[in-house]
């Protein structure tokens, strides 16, 4: 399980972020005392840091610069500032990503998991039980049989696979699809899911995706 440190001085925002990340299955630690943030960042043994830019005392960009000198733990900058200057600066100081408030929660989670994956360097193929999922060729294979998935189907299947055993809401699916420049409407999403099911049943696993009424879908 990945550990995340949140460096954010607004108490409410920090609490809600913790809840969001814990619900998504991360171990979360936060900072309560803002006198020696840098020391706490250095001592924390985590996989990723969410760092606010506007902090009492030293600001996030200074902290980032100092921290990057001897550590390459991924850092995502969070900020309410809306100019490109901060973004350019942060990225040049070695931030892995930069997200402006108020962030879309689903996209925040996506970015976090993208940064974590990047740092682990996972391969381009993944296994789902005995099905081989290849993101490069956009196909799934089982017992020597292959099914080609469209881009949309692949995005949906990948998302379900990332959250195997958990419910993924239609809303989250939409956010992810739209984030990949696939602007589907409600009907089109249903069509894509049923096509994906058909392709899975060709491989003999037609019951892999379960529908939870009013909640979403679940990959068993």
């Amino acid at each position: 399980m990945n550990k995340i440190l949140i460096v954010e001085d607004d108490r409410t925002l920090c609490e809600e972020l913790s809840i969001l990340l814990e619900n998504a299955g991360y171990l979360v630690s936060t900072i309560a005392d803002f006198n020696d943030v840098f020391l706490q960042m250095k001592e924390a043994d985590v996989d990723l840091i969410l760092l606010d830019i506007n902090l009492p005392g030293e600001n996030g960009e200074v902290l980032l610069q100092k921290y990057r000198k001897d550590s390459d733990t991924p850092i995502i900058m969070l900020t309410s500032r809306t100019d490109d200057i901060d973004e350019v600066l942060s990225m040049s100081y070695g931030a892995d990503d930069y997200i402006t408030k108020p962030y879309n929660p689903t996209i925040l989670l996506l970015r976090i998991s993208a940064v974590l994956k990047r740092s682990v360097k996972k391969g381009q193929t993944q296994m789902y039980n005995d099905v081989q999922v290849s993101f490069v060729s956009g196909s799934i294979m089982r017992n020597g049989m292959e099914q080609i998935l469209t881009k949309n189907e692949m995005i949906i299947f990948g998302l379900l696979l990332d959250h195997k055993g958990e419910i993924v809401s239609r809303d989250d699916m939409m956010t992810v699809l739209w984030d990949n420049d696939e602007y589907l409407n409600d009907n089109a999403l249903s069509v894509n899911i049923s096509r994906l099911r058909t392709k899975l049943s060709e491989l003999g696993i037609g019951d892999a995706i379960e529908t939870r009424k009013k909640q979403g879908y679940l990959l068993k």
Partner: peptide, 15 residues
């Protein structure tokens, strides 16, 4: 920038 912080909290609460 200040006003965006509570808005961010609200969005997370909704989620």
């Amino acid at each position: 920038h200040e006003a965006k912080i509570p808005v961010a909290s609200l969005r997370l609460m909704c989620h």
